[in-house]
Simulated scan of single mutants.
Amino acid sequence: MIKTYFFLLVAVAFETFGSACLQASQQFTKLWPTVGVAVGFIGGLYFFTLVLKVLPLGITYALWSGIGMVLIAGVGWLLFNQRLDAPALIGIGLILAGIMVINLFSRSHFH
């Protein structure tokens, strides 16, 4: 099971990289960030499918998208100077709380 969560984190890392490259590509007008988009999203989807061998789709997608959203919000802040206001930070906190509830209390995250 630890390997499954490791693959999930790798999928999220690829997806976060792809999303950051999407911003940097400036609508696909810069070559290397555009290549990064493809690498990031293809790699993310590949590892996402490995996780689906163990975890159900709904739980996997909730974790993948929630963790990815939190990470890309941080990347946007660090790399692109995109600031978040209090309601955005509260919303991100609620998403993190939801991820914790799923992992700590739900019995539905196993096949």
Results as ranks from 00 to 15, higher is better:
Leu78Asn: 07
Ala62Glu: 00
Gly58Ala: 11
Ala86Val: 14
Phe41Cys: 04
Ala24Asn: 09
Gly18Phe: 09
Gln23Thr: 14
Val54Asn: 15
Leu9Ile: 10
Gly44Ser: 14
Gly98Asp: 02
Trp77Asn: 10
Leu31Thr: 15
Phe14Thr: 00
Tyr61Ala: 03
Val12Gly: 04
Leu9Trp: 10
His111Trp: 13
Gln27Met: 14
Ala24Val: 11
Ile72Lys: 05
Gly68Val: 08
Gly91Arg: 00
Thr4Gln: 07
Val12Phe: 04
Gly91Lys: 01
Ile2Val: 15
Gly44Pro: 03
Pro87Tyr: 00
Phe14Ala: 00
His109Pro: 12
Gly58Met: 04
Tyr61Glu: 01
Thr4Met: 08
Thr49Ile: 09
Lys30Arg: 14
Leu55Thr: 15
Ser106Ile: 03
Val37Pro: 06
Leu22Ala: 05
Leu89Asp: 13
Gly98Val: 07
Leu63Tyr: 10
Gly66Asn: 06
Leu31Pro: 13
Leu104Cys: 08
His109Gly: 13
Met100Asn: 09
Lys30Val: 14
Ser25Thr: 06
Cys21Gly: 11
Met69Lys: 08
Ile67Met: 01
Tyr61His: 03
Phe41Arg: 10
Met100Lys: 06
Leu104Trp: 09
Thr34Lys: 04
Thr49Gln: 06
Phe7Cys: 14
Ala86His: 10
Gly44Phe: 06
Lys53Phe: 09
Gly18Trp: 02
Ile92Asn: 04
Thr49Leu: 08
Ile92His: 02
Gly98Leu: 01
Gly44Lys: 09
Leu9Ser: 13
Phe105Met: 07
Gly76Arg: 01
Gly68Ala: 11
Gln82Asp: 12
Cys21Thr: 08
Ala62Met: 00
Phe17Ala: 07
Ala73Gly: 09
Tyr5Val: 12
His111Cys: 14
Tyr5Trp: 13
Trp32Tyr: 14
Glu15Val: 07
Phe110Arg: 15
Thr49Arg: 01
Asn81His: 12
Arg83Trp: 10
Ile42Gln: 06
Lys30Asn: 14
Ser19Tyr: 11
Val75Glu: 11
Val10Lys: 01
Leu63Gln: 03
Lys3Val: 15
Gly18Ser: 08
Ala13Tyr: 05
Leu8Met: 01
Ala88Tyr: 00
Ala11Thr: 03
Ala97Lys: 03
Lys53Tyr: 05
Pro87Asn: 00
Leu57Gln: 10
Phe6Leu: 14
Phe80Ala: 06
Phe28Gln: 05
Phe48Gln: 09
Gln27Glu: 14
Phe48Asn: 11
Val70Lys: 03
Leu78Cys: 04
Glu15Phe: 06
Ile2Met: 15
Ala20Cys: 05
Gly66Pro: 02
Lys3Asn: 14
Phe6Pro: 00
Phe105Arg: 02
Gly44Met: 04
Leu50Asn: 12
Ile72Asn: 04
Ala62Trp: 00
Leu50His: 13
